[in-house]
Simulated scan of single mutants.
Amino acid sequence: MIGETVVVVREVVTGTDAHNEPITEAVEESVDDVLIAPGPRADIPDAFRPVGTVVAWNLHFPKTFTGSLRGAKVSVRGGAPCDVIGDPQPFTLANTPTRWHMPVELERADG
């Protein structure tokens, strides 16, 4: 299997304004060797998904990625950034003999 490069976009607080409100900036990080598949996966029933959630992509991040994806967006194959669903967590290392261990679902709503 061959992974691809995706771009993870996170909002990072860089300070506060005159009203003590946070100032954020979008920070991009390229992640190599991500397995990409179009969504949805057939093995997850719709009853377990939030209402209105449409899975655009299913990704598997490599073990070399250690960051959090909660609240992030991911751009796949140069497309518009899609929202990460939930707070993806990696599988136990002992149960993942391959290079990939964290499944991630992306959602996107058009219109």
Rank of each mutant, 00 (worst) to 15 (best):
A42M: 06
G67H: 09
I85P: 04
G39T: 11
F91R: 06
F65W: 13
P90L: 02
Q89R: 14
G15F: 10
E25Y: 01
V54S: 11
V6E: 03
T98F: 06
P88S: 14
A37W: 12
V27L: 04
P103M: 07
Q89V: 04
P38N: 07
V12N: 04
V12M: 09
V13H: 02
T16K: 14
D46P: 06
D110E: 09
D110K: 02
N58Y: 08
T96Q: 01
S75A: 13
P40L: 07
E21W: 10
R70L: 09
P81Y: 01
R77E: 03
V13F: 03
T92D: 10
V6H: 05
H19M: 12
A109R: 13
G86M: 11
P90R: 00
H101K: 00
L106S: 14
E107P: 00
T5Y: 02
G39C: 09
V54F: 09
E107V: 08
R108P: 03
G71W: 04
T16N: 14
P62T: 13
T5G: 01
T53L: 15
R49V: 11
P22M: 09
R77H: 08
E25V: 01
H19W: 13
F48E: 09
P90W: 00
V34T: 12
T53H: 10
V31S: 05
G52V: 12
I23D: 05
H60A: 15
P88K: 14
N20D: 15
I23H: 06
G3A: 09
V7E: 14
N20I: 03
E25A: 03
E21T: 11
T64K: 12
W57E: 08
R77F: 03
T92N: 07
V12D: 01
V7Q: 09
A18L: 13
I85L: 15
P81E: 02
R49G: 06
T14I: 13
G79P: 04
G15K: 12
D110G: 04
A47W: 03
S68K: 03
I85H: 03
L59H: 15
E4P: 03
D33F: 10
T16L: 14
V84A: 07
V34M: 10
V51Y: 02
W57P: 06
T14L: 05
V9P: 05
T16E: 15
P45M: 08
I44W: 05
T24L: 05
A94M: 01
D46Q: 09
R49N: 09
G111I: 04
V55F: 10
E21G: 10
G79A: 12
T5S: 08
V76M: 06
L106F: 14
E25S: 07
W57R: 07
R77T: 00
H19E: 13
F61S: 13
A26F: 05
F91V: 04
V13M: 08
W100Q: 12
P90C: 06
